[in-house]
Amino acid sequence: MKLYRRSLWVFHLNSGSCNGCDIEILNALAPRQDAERLGVKLVGSPRHADAILFTGPVTREALPSVVRAIQAVPEPKIVLAVGACACGGGIWHDSYCVLGGIQGLYRVLKSMGITPPKTFFVPGCPPKPEAIIQGILLARGLVRQKQVRSEYYEEQALAEKAEVDLHRLFHKYFWVRVPPEAARVKYGVAYY
């Protein structure tokens, strides 16, 4: 995102969050963290903004206003989903009155033929003000991303060997005379 290497003006869009994230966003601009020294400015209108700090799980009631606010931000724009609610719907992700965070919102946007803007995620409940600052700097390409996806899959050979051992134990205890393949029938009780 070369466009945003310099000062980023942000508009804070709340789609029904609990206020936790909203106050942490203000905290990031308060004297201790003072995001303004990094060129971040909170603006009062989506028309003036480069980026949206998006909080809340998107309630049904707020949906029309949220859609229009996102549309009002001039291109090119980016969205920062701040907090657990915006990133993944939070604790109310499957409630009847909630769309489930930014993903649900984008589903609605796509159904209306609007392309969702580039989005960054800042998890936390609420995220520390420093985490929000890190998110903004990440969007500007000034810091490295620390969070990476991690995957682990158990090794097949080892696990199968362990399973065979356990099955052998089974034959030791239960004195099954038939080979294990044949024992693998429902109602296996009949075989011994």
């Binding site: 993903q103 995620f121 998890p123 985490a131 969070q147 158990e154 696990a159």
Partner: peptide
């Protein structure tokens, strides 16, 4: 606490067991 990520996929941890 610095968990900001560029894509949603980065926010997962998967553990697969046999």
């Amino acid at each position: 606490f610095e968990l900001a990520a560029e894509s949603r996929e980065d926010l997962y941890q998967v553990v697969g067991l046999r």
